[in-house]
Design a protein around this nucleic acid. Sequence first.
DNA 1: TTGATTGTTACCGG
DNA 2: TCCGGTAACAATCA
Length: 264
Amino acid sequence: MPEGHTIHRAARDHHRAFAGQKLSISSPQGRFSDGACLLNAQICETVEAFGKHLVYMFQNKLALHIHLGLFGKIRKLPLPLKSPKGAVRVRMASTTHFVDINGPTICEVLNQEEIDALINRLGPDVLRPDANPEVSFQKIQQSGLPIGRLIMDQSIIAGIGNIYRTEILWRQAIHPEIPGRAISRQAFDRIWDDAAYLLAIGVKKNAIITVDEKINSKKRSGEKYNIFGKASCPKCGEGLRRLEINKRRAFVCETCQPLLNHIN
DNA sequence: TTGATTGTTACCGG
DNA sequence: TCCGGTAACAATCA
């Protein structure tokens, strides 16, 4: 479910609905009872996203930290409360709405120090205006690992997931197996800018859409991805190569994304 | 029941 | 230190 856009969208939405309100926090399946007790009936101050991490800050200086992992889900609905659908770990309710969180890999209460540590171990988040891309570029330039790995490493750039990885590199004509240290500053800037652009589209549309024609039209029809999960390249028509990067599927068009030593 | 899936971390070994 | 590999965990759906 989540790449960075999902979490940022939820943060924005939940902040609007919950900031300044006293929340009733419960653990319907009893799998987060201790944490829910620490936060129940506290006033929510902010809801913020850091990469794929969602953080609800409360007035007692404790925070709820959520990471959805591969298949966690967030649902927000207007009251009245409905019976939990599936395995709901934690439920938060104001006087108008409630949020259910299903299947997160991380669901924990952190203090301020722990939140700081979390933020510090993440790289700059392409969706945050305060992000400094220079930090990401330095790390990429010092690494011999393939760029396809590096841009999905959350300690280097926060927010990009598996689908965006393949799509961004195709859009920028950069082969995923080029080592980080061979990526020029200009090529890095194109990756960063395109990531920021596409993730922002994702926040707005609540979907991963990387095909320009679809981004710029209101139609519901049309392909959402250029090459992810596809057999051939929409630009040149050649067959795509399927590969695995860290056990995750990836795609490349060897014609449009040549494996060069130097990228301009 | 099996497999696949928009993710991450810990740990071991070279 | 860097890097690859593996396992573990999470929930749902076809």
